[in-house]
Amino acid sequence: QITKEQLGLMKVIVDAYNTHQIPQDVAKKLLQEQYSEEENFLLLTEMATSQVQVLVEFTKNIPGFLSLDHEDQIALLKGSAVEAMFLRSAQVFSRKMPNGHTEVLEERIRKSGISEEFMTPMFNFYKSIGELHMVQEEQALLTAITILTPDRAYVKDQKAVERLQEPMLDLLRKLCALQHPQEPQYFARLLGRLTELRTLNHYHAEMLTSWRMN
């Protein structure tokens, strides 16, 4: 059973998740027609920068985060920025978009100089996230859990991070049991997505390098 305290925690996380979104004007640019490859590339870079800023604003609201060691805060954010970005953009692809928008987005990403080798794992991830039909609370909590990953590089006090992540994992487990009673494996499947996310980190780093070269 979810305790009153956990309900409070969930509300804080979901409110922060909803409050801090990519600004409408930036997001709208993604849907405008006819961009050249260079413009697509610059647009995606602008989106990535905006997503990182949104991520930091969201993370500041995670109870206890700002009381962590300052450099550990940086290490956690740096270590999770790419994963949180893919997790967030996956929801854009899985939400019911007005007809044609998803195709325009996909087309834009395919025509931005990113090679097929990185595209496939990314769209596979979007598909596997879409199949889960996550509710907003699950998306917000999973993002917070991704950020509070204790074993990120350069994190000094891993125990302190664990103490923040644990209640989130417990809450997500209970939420999954409530939301998906007929799917006892649902929580495990969600955590499985986090493993898939980590592989995207590797692809993203290689993608940046190849972008720089062309």
Binding site: Q53, V56, Q73, I74, L77, K78, A81
Partner: peptide, 21 residues
Amino acid sequence: PASNLGLEDIIRKALMGNLEE
């Protein structure tokens, strides 16, 4: 493009809360 160094700058600046620059 936002290089890795850029990523840390964006994070530090956002953490300090002065996004307007």
